[in-house]
Computed example of a mutant assay.
Amino acid sequence: MSVDILNCDATAEAARPSAAAAPKEGDVLGRIGNLETRLARSAREIDAAQAVRYRVFVEEMKAQLPADAMRRERDFDAYDAFCDHLLVLDRSIEGDAEDQIVGTYRLLRQDVAMANGGFYSASEFAIDELIARHPDKRFMELGRSCVLPQYRTKRTVELLWQGNWAYALKHGMSAMFGCASFPGVHPESHALALSFLYHSVLAKNEWAVGALPHLARDMDLMPAEGVNPKKALMALPPLIKGYLRLGAMVGSSAVVDQAFNTTDVLIVLPISSISDRYLNYYGADAGRFAS
C-alpha cells in the first residue's frame, strides 16, 4: 500500500512517545463493523503504532531507518511527540488496544506545526510557499500512513478517511496535504502513473506547489497524448487513488527518498474540493464524531 514516508533523524529522547501527545476523551472518529478509528490515548498506543509502521516500512518495504530505530524495531522521529496519531483498531482481536492496532495515520495541524518548527513535508516540498498564499486558511498534514497487509481493504481505507474527515471538521481545517509514495527510487519506472498525475490533476495557480529545487524530479515523463488514463489509474498505489476520488491535486515534481526506497509526490486536498458525493458519504457519519 502506498505510504507517506520521509526519513528524519531523531535523538533517543525525541523517540520516546510523549504522554503530552495523548488526546482527551471523546476521540473516537468512526466505526465500521469490528473496526474503529480514533486517536491514540497513551504513550503505549503511540509506541504500538510505531511498531506497525516499522513492520510496513522496514520489514515489508525495506526502508533503512537510523540505527536506534532499527535496534528498537520502531519507526519514530521527533514529530511523533506533538502530532496526533490516528489509529484503526480491530476490536475482534483479543488483548489490549495496543494489540488491536492494524493501521495508522499521523496528523499535524498548522498551529501545532508552527509552534514546533514547521511541517514535516517541508523537508522535501515547498510547503511554506503554499501556506503563504493562503493566510486565511488552516492546513493539516497527513503523514506516515500505513495499514497491515491483511487489512488493506476498501473498508479500512474508508474508515481512515472517515477519521481524517471527522478530525478536520472538529478542528476547522481548510485543506489537507501530505506525501504519498511509489515504491522504488527510479521515477522512470512509474512514468505512466506520474505523467498521468502531472497532466490530469496538477495543482495549479494558488494551489501550485513543487519539490524543493535541489530535490525535484520530473513527473512529466510522457506526452499527454501518450498516456492511457485507464492503465495509468491501474498503476497508481491505492492511497493515491483514494486521494484522487476525494478531489485531490498533486504537486508538480517528485522527490526520491533513498532511505525509504520510495518516490514521493505531494497530495493537496482543499476541503472545498471534496466532491459532493464523498462529502455527503463521509460528512453525514463523521459529523456525529466531530462535535
Score class of each variant (00 low, 15 high):
residue 94 E to T: 06
residue 90 D to F: 02
residue 80 D to A: 06
residue 111 D to Q: 15
residue 84 D to C: 08
residue 97 A to L: 11
residue 105 Y to V: 03
residue 91 R to G: 01
residue 92 S to H: 12
residue 103 G to Q: 10
residue 107 L to H: 01
residue 93 I to E: 07
residue 110 Q to A: 12
residue 94 E to L: 09
residue 104 T to N: 11
residue 103 G to R: 07
residue 104 T to E: 05
residue 87 L to D: 13
residue 91 R to C: 01
residue 89 L to E: 09
residue 111 D to A: 13
residue 104 T to V: 15
residue 80 D to G: 11
residue 100 Q to F: 01
residue 90 D to A: 01
residue 94 E to S: 13
residue 93 I to C: 07
residue 90 D to V: 02
residue 80 D to C: 08
residue 101 I to A: 04
residue 86 L to C: 12
residue 111 D to I: 02
residue 80 D to T: 06
residue 107 L to N: 05
residue 102 V to N: 10
residue 100 Q to P: 00
residue 96 D to Y: 11
residue 80 D to E: 11
residue 88 V to Y: 01
residue 81 A to L: 11
residue 110 Q to G: 11
residue 94 E to R: 06
residue 102 V to D: 09
residue 89 L to F: 02
residue 98 E to F: 03
residue 110 Q to D: 10
residue 106 R to P: 07
residue 100 Q to V: 05
residue 111 D to W: 07
residue 80 D to R: 04
residue 94 E to N: 07
residue 97 A to E: 14
residue 89 L to D: 00
residue 109 R to L: 15
residue 91 R to K: 04
residue 96 D to T: 14
residue 84 D to E: 13
residue 83 C to Q: 10
residue 80 D to S: 07
residue 91 R to N: 00
residue 111 D to R: 13
residue 108 L to H: 06
residue 92 S to W: 15
residue 110 Q to T: 04
residue 108 L to E: 09
residue 102 V to T: 10
residue 82 F to C: 13
residue 109 R to W: 07
residue 102 V to Q: 13
residue 102 V to P: 12
residue 102 V to W: 13
